[in-house]
Design a protein around this nucleic acid. Structure first.
Lengths: 201, 201
DNA sequence: GGCTATTTATCACAGGCGTGATAAATTGTC
DNA sequence: GACAATTTATCACGCCTGTGATAAATAGCC
């Protein structure tokens, strides 16, 4: 019984091809035939690893969610506990930048996530992953603010998560043409006022 | 030479039908046949008023941009000049809420604009309108902050426009499920710190 | 009433899509 | 080398799409 190729690896390659297509043409530009061509496989091969279109979409969304979860896990909240001043600001900024399009890799992931979130509005397939990502991000930001001793961390977290969405939107789409430097500066300004405001009271 | 129906009005009705479809199914759910059905017309009739698919999309985008422009024009920046304290905060909040999904009508328009902005990333048709809307909004916010005497209005405007995008995203899509009350509170908290921070220095 | 331009309604075509079904090739094991 | 399971490659079908072309109906004007 031949198994010269690792199925999981194959699925991974296909999903990566799907990501590239989403970045290039948007989530509605995905089709089994295009994904097959992009991944260098035959349509029949793609369909052998994914039950169909819906299944491929779900797998791609799952992978996007996992990647975001891994990014968030890379900055354990415990490392923030007790930090103050510039150290606190730097640590918080680094945490948030983990999920912001500050380099090519994160830019691609941000595009996929953004397309996914918007698509979840009308396509039930994406809803669970979309909601899970939002919950994960919200919890991490909330825990981070709590670890830093910020007053009213819920309100602060709401501001930060909203800012993350807006900054991603402005950076990734051409309508705002926000540069990475501007993104970083705007985020830092916001986080700075949020932390300093808390210290004063 | 008969003209029992006003062509402009007809186009308007068709565009409104297109808006309803975008809200219901997303911008890629648009098709000439669906728009015709939604507007109660025949495909041939729709095609008589719009050269084709692309033309319909462009007209819908144009209308969306015009509506946003009209909303922004409803709150002349001159009215903000010299305001301080709670009055300044209220006025600024009212201005920004003009383009936020705080009621059904603005929610629908926000969805259309959001779909349009994201679609502009891969579809050149939407680019000019998308960029125009961003420029208009940015200018209005910038002027408003300048009229209120905020220090570094550029930075503040960048934060506010980003927040607008993020709040819209969180409210309109199911991933964050931000309620209108939360949206208002988050916006107010941000605007409050932005104004108060300026006063202290 | 008849003329004419506008508006509406169809038909047909090519292209892309997801999908079911099935044949062919490949490769490790015996 | 032969067997068998996995993997790959095609074919065909129905559906939906945009679009060009064209016929039919409508309604104002003389």
């Amino acid at each position: 019984m031949p198994a010269r190729i690792d199925p999981e690896q194959r699925r991974g390659h296909v999903v990566e091809a799907a990501f590239r297509l989403v970045v290039a043409e948007g989530i509605d530009g995905l089709s089994l035939r295009k994904v097959a061509a992009e991944s260098g496989l035959n349509i029949g091969s793609v369909r052998h690893y994914f039950d169909g279109h819906e299944d491929l979409l779900a797998a791609a969304a799952e992978e996007a969610g996992d990647r975001m979860g891994r990014r968030l896990a890379r900055r354990p909240v415990e490392g923030l506990r007790g930090l103050t001043g510039a150290a606190a600001l730097d640590a918080l900024q680094a945490l948030v930048e983990e999920v912001l399009p500050v380099d090519d890799e994160r830019r691609a992931e941000s595009i996929v996530v953004l397309e996914l979130i918007l698509a979840a509005r009308t396509r039930p397939v994406f809803r669970p992953i979309s909601e899970r990502m939002a919950a994960d991000l919200g919890q991490v930001v909330l825990d981070a603010l709590a670890a830093l001793g910020v007053r009213d961390p819920e309100a602060g977290a709401a501001q930060i998560t909203a800012l993350i969405g807006g900054l991603t939107l402005d950076t990734v789409t051409p309508h705002g043409s926000l540069s990475v430097e501007q993104l970083r500066a705007t985020l830092r300004a916001h986080l700075g006022t949020l932390l300093s405001r808390d210290r004063e009271e």
